[in-house]
């Protein structure tokens, strides 16, 4: 399990999990779940385009996640945000289908992009992931207070001169950055599950904003480590365990939150 060829796996998974936990905290608070799914999924045609053009796949991924942010925010101005997200996503995937049809040997790579290839990470793969993750971590920490206030109430934030529209785009940008670097290594599914599951549990367990964010990163690390260990033990794909554990974290968080609330109600009435 800790064999030398797996060292990279543990390192990359740790970096991605910590970042996804921190950024995911705001995904959950702001209700950006659909975008958190659509942005990583919409980036994967970028990899296909890059392989067609023979450039570094990271460029393709970053370009397509940028297109995703533009699509979601620009279409969202004129209509409902979830429609903007859905249509941007299908358009990007449609382009993906076009690129795939142009290059024929891609089905294995598609599986890897969707569900991750975490057990075959090279040292070279780590560098871009680490750099981009540090950037998104720094941006999220820097914007912590405006993002938090905006999540509580966009209007209160505006009264503190935090513009709602720009905050939205900025956060989508952070999300896009985080996911596009992680996708080629850990896959769309893994990133998405980590931005939803652990933060949902963390917000239920503590009332402190900073504490919840750190707890979210911690739970995210636990999820990923447990998933890799289970995957190695049982020989099943990592994505299965991350998806399952992420959903479990969400479910337990919800149940806990509702239990606490009902207990308080009973205490008040009784």
């Amino acid at each position: 399990m800790f064999a030398s060829f797996l060292v990279n796996t543990w390192i990359v998974a740790t970096i991605v999990a910590a970042t996804a936990g921190v950024v995911g905290f705001f995904v959950v608070l702001r209700g950006n779940s659909f975008a958190a799914h659509a942005l990583p999924l919409g980036t994967f045609p970028g990899a296909a385009a890059a392989s067609l053009l023979g450039v570094n796949p990271l460029f393709g991924l970053l370009t397509f996640s940028g297109l995703g942010v533009i699509g979601i925010s620009q279409l969202g101005k004129a209509g409902r945000p979830e429609i903007a997200t859905a249509l941007s996503l299908v358009m990007l995937l449609g382009l993906g289908a076009l690129f795939l049809s142009m290059s024929n040997e891609y089905s294995q790579a598609t599986y890897a992009l969707l569900f991750g290839e975490v057990l075959g990470v090279s040292s070279l793969d780590i560098v871009p992931v680490a750099v981009v993750s540090v950037v998104s971590l720094a941006l999220t920490t820097l914007l912590f207070r405006p993002l938090l206030l905006n999540a509580v109430s966009p209007e209160l934030a505006e009264a503190r001169s935090v513009p709602a529209g720009r905050t939205d785009i900025l956060f989508l940008g952070i999300l896009a950055l985080t996911t596009s670097a992680a996708v080629p290594v850990v896959g769309v599914l893994l990133v998405f599950s980590l931005t939803i599951g652990p933060p949902s549990a963390a917000r239920a367990l503590t009332n402190r904003p900073v504490g919840a964010m750190l707890l979210s990163a911690g739970l995210s690390l636990l999820t990923v480590w447990a998933s890799i260990a289970l995957a190695l033990l049982l020989g099943w794909p990592v994505g299965f365990f991350v998806g399952g554990l992420g959903a479990l974290a969400y479910g337990l968080g919800r149940v806990w939150m509702e239990w606490v609330r009902s207990r308080r109600c009973r205490a008040l009435s009784g």
Binding site: T141, L142, L143, F144, R145, P146, L148, L149, V152, L156, A157, R160, S161, V162, V210
Partner: peptide
Amino acid sequence: LGLDGHRLGL
């Protein structure tokens, strides 16, 4: 946050 919600950093 009323005091410094617009400021950067934790």
